[in-house]
Design a protein around this nucleic acid. Sequence first.
DNA 1: ATTAAAAATGCAAATGTTTTCATTTATTTA
DNA 2: TAAATAAATGAAAACATTTGCATTTTTAAT
Lengths: 342, 342
Amino acid sequence: MRARSRKGAPGIVEVAKRAGVSPATVSRFFNEPEIVKGKTRNLIEQAAKDLGYYRNRIAGTDQHGFSGTIGLIVPTIDNAIFAELIQAFSSRLLHHDRTMLIAAHGYNPALEVGIVKSLLERRIDGVALIGFEHEKAPLEMLAARGVPVLAAWNYRKDSPIPCIGADNYQVGYQAADHLQQMGHQDVALVFPPTQSNDRAEDRLNGVLDVFNKDISTLGQNRFIETRYDIGEAKQAIIKLLLEDRPSAIICGNDVIAQGAVYACQSLGINIPDDVSIIGIGDFRGSSHMEPGLTTVRMPAQRIAEQAADLLCGGLSVTSVKGTTRIKIQSELVVRKSVKDIN
Amino acid sequence: MRARSRKGAPGIVEVAKRAGVSPATVSRFFNEPEIVKGKTRNLIEQAAKDLGYYRNRIAGTDQHGFSGTIGLIVPTIDNAIFAELIQAFSSRLLHHDRTMLIAAHGYNPALEVGIVKSLLERRIDGVALIGFEHEKAPLEMLAARGVPVLAAWNYRKDSPIPCIGADNYQVGYQAADHLQQMGHQDVALVFPPTQSNDRAEDRLNGVLDVFNKDISTLGQNRFIETRYDIGEAKQAIIKLLLEDRPSAIICGNDVIAQGAVYACQSLGINIPDDVSIIGIGDFRGSSHMEPGLTTVRMPAQRIAEQAADLLCGGLSVTSVKGTTRIKIQSELVVRKSVKDIN
DNA sequence: ATTAAAAATGCAAATGTTTTCATTTATTTA
DNA sequence: TAAATAAATGAAAACATTTGCATTTTTAAT
């Protein structure tokens, strides 16, 4: 049995005793200060300070049903993709006086149910997850408990659950459209597997629509699948470049684009003179690369902050109709990695 | 007042009733299954499943004093530096059936006290933080509550609190030593401010000792301060390269090194022929850069996992003597960014 | 100054567990 | 097979809060 060290810590009743008021009043002081009289307020404040009292936010949770904790489930933390989102979400939550419980499933949907269970056991007040493709089980568990769920990062007008994010179809469209404007016809697509990645899927569709192509009509070397991993992308793109160099490469996100840039550098191929590259995301660092990466900016911070606000503001429980859906505008940022060949 | 949606969720007593046993037994079933008889075990398991019961892990927290939650406080999430650590820590915690409460203070120590308070209010069982330099207040708050604290990432044999990490002095030494072995005498140091960054401070000292230099004897262009930011580092290093190019650059960590690489590329300076670069950290991506970055590997994953194990295993309460201190070995990984000029 | 209304506070019940101690049931030993 | 021991379970108290309702105090209205 473990040491039970923080026993004997002063509680609300000790504070009450010292302040000469009832515990109920102390409780009210911390939850709705404006409802207790100025004078008693001071008394309690002083007593709390004297005793070194910290609120116990998890004690009465059962009673009122809120723990002040919000969950965030992401595919991965260890990757530039969601870093900005996580950071912003966490710090915004702090403003709302909530804390964040975070977990990553490493693109393995099967892990998600375990994570959700663990969060539910901690009585989270709400949870944000990435995208729409999830196993049925965790979603049902959440729904059964009436825990508000919010899909962050992607937007679809007919999303099955409330969502906030960029319209990834449009994001893909923007990127491809730019390439087309610049006169590129022979472009290679490098994307991650889209089975359980709706963001990538939507982007891909946007891209395909610009070029009016179907995935099956794309040649072997014009559609390449690789995970969001710099090394893997680099290898795949080296191979592409060696076999059949396109005029431009459009990457599923900026980490793939980074791999593409490294691939070119390792082969001595000049960007953008020999080949143009466009990314998606505008991650930290993309602007400083050489050459500066042309990409479509996903406003991670805005998404994260609004997501936090929504979840803290007691997002209404999901119902098929009347679901909250917020679209955040993405933005093409042109730097130096795409050449105008008109 | 918010909807109190998850009211009426089945509790331990409903499960008990349905299984025809007492609540106490159900409680035992979940906490020490081996102590309840096989037959009743099945009964309870079935009842729980039927009712869709989830444990309520925060209910009795006050009573036994453990919440099953561990805190992690990092300077920043949105940066390659700690991404691997966070990920590994979180997933290891999951194995221990704990969850992680994480917060970032953005290198602003003043924020740390607010964060610690918030964690304390949630009755965390322990907390990991980065490095040794912290304000007195949060450390005292933690100590007063008897919450185990662990400094991860850096190791010092005389650390004020329990620690686990690489010996950053040695890390710096390794990097500089390699440069020296390769015949570099004229090297520039590019480091972040070391005031409240013990990791950087220790590395810097290791480097200085190799070259037997004092910081004051280093010329204006042989010691440069820049934050851990690719863009800022890139700018600073471009300036350096233009004014007075050294034979090699040793960077405070890999993000600075990345900035250095980009700086060279933007100037058309060849690595390693014109200038050698060595980083510290071996972050995700460092191996795939062009040229592959020579660096000193910090085993983030090992550190994180052991940290999690320690904290879950009920790290003994801090006492000045007999404090746990674990050193994780770093490792020089030589790739292509340093030239042998012997 | 009285009365009426509003604001502030207290009392006690309720929350969902865990835990101690007592009791019952099962197992081992002689 | 009886007694002794060990294992499994139950009853009820405890935990630190919040909250509905009742009561007291303050303020406003006449």
